[in-house]
């Protein structure tokens, strides 16, 4: 850094192009959307900037607040499930033999290499009424019936008169399931990084002092991985809150999230000012969460420093 200050030409040659890119393609468009959010729709493409707060007031309508609340709820459950599933996975990988680690990590990252849309359609094929989960369940149902018939209990129809497919798709369950599936790698990777860095002698010391595996996990491993857990929560929560493809394709009529509403404003409803206002409310909520995190981190910085 110091040498760059002494040689400003090099600094600007390297940093000017990305700075300009960020300015023109990120900050300026973002500023435009912010300005739109104070505008009024005049025609099909005309927006007049009147600095009205009407769009923000409209977003406070219970209808939209409810969708905001539902989005937060879905995202919170998703983040918790990702943690519950991702922590054991990350823990397992960090203690796997060294030659396996790259392959296990690859298995976690691999879904990223496939388009989200394709992955979501694949999930539809798995979850739908005539999907693989229900096929498997039906197979078990058939086997069960066959076994019962063999035992001479066939006539009682203990497993029901016919196979009832589970409603796994186009509901809230499908949305949360899909969100967990999509965001799991975001949770696993920061957790893995934190656990991998952890000195294994902390775990050994805990065992040595008489603690069992479970106590060691909850009193030593989890607290020491706290920084990684916070990162994992943020990095999972933020993109999950803005999801629109997953609820759009997997959800039912009542499982839309706020991003679906925003998308509709910009496309079918053609109400850019309102869509912009909703976008910024979502962003402010995210900033609030980050500020909260920073505040929490400051409270425990003495722990993480060690």
């Amino acid at each position: 850094m110091e040498s760059w200050r002494r040689n400003p030409l090099v600094f600007w040659v390297i940093n000017l192009p990305p700075s300009l890119w960020l300015l023109f393609f990120f900050l300026i468009p973002l500023g435009l959307i912010w300005i739109f959010s104070f505008g009024e729709k005049r025609g099909v493409v005309d927006i007049e900037i009147t600095w009205t707060l009407a769009n923000y007031l409209r977003a406070m309508d219970p209808l939209y607040l409810q969708i905001f609340a539902k989005s937060l709820w879905f995202t919170a459950i998703t983040t918790l499930l990702c943690l519950a599933v991702g922590f054991p996975i990350a823990f397992g990988i960090s203690f796997a033999p060294a030659k396996w680690k790259p392959w296990l990590l690859l298995a976690i990252i691999l879904p990223f290499w496939t388009n989200l849309l394709i992955r979501t359609y694949a999930l539809i094929a798995v979850l739908r009424t005539r999907g693989y989960v229900n096929f498997t369940l039906e197979w078990f149902w058939d086997q069960g019936n066959w076994l019962l018939a063999l035992l001479g209990l066939g006539q009682y129809q203990l497993l029901g008169a016919q196979f009832e497919a589970l409603p796994l798709l186009y509901n809230n369950f499908a949305v949360v399931f899909g969100l967990v599936y999509v965001h799991l790698p975001f949770t696993v990777l920061p957790l893995y990084a934190a656990l991998e860095r952890m000195d294994s002698s902390y775990i050994e010391a805990s065992l040595d002092l008489g603690a069992g595996q479970f106590r060691t996990f909850f009193t030593v491993v989890v607290p020491l991985a706290k920084a990684g857990i916070i990162s994992a929560v943020i990095i999972t929560f933020i993109p999950a809150l803005g999801s629109f493809l997953t609820p759009d394709l997997l959800g039912g009529t009542d499982s839309q999230m706020i991003a679906n509403v925003i998308e509709r404003q910009f496309k079918s409803a053609n109400d850019w000012p309102f869509g912009a206002a909703l976008s910024f409310i979502l962003m402010y909520a995210t900033f609030f969460a980050l500020a909260l995190r920073a505040l929490l981190a400051r409270g425990s910085s003495s722990m993480e420093a060690a």
């Binding site: 000195d199 050994e204 010391a205 002092l209 607290p223 020491l224 706290k226 722990m303």
Partner: peptide, 20 residues
């Protein structure tokens, strides 16, 4: 006999004093 059941204790090279 697992480590947590042995009446033997250890001082680790890195000390492993729990930072939290």
């Amino acid at each position: 006999v697992p480590p947590n059941k042995r009446p033997i204790n250890m001082v680790f090279q890195s000390y492993a004093v729990f930072p939290h």
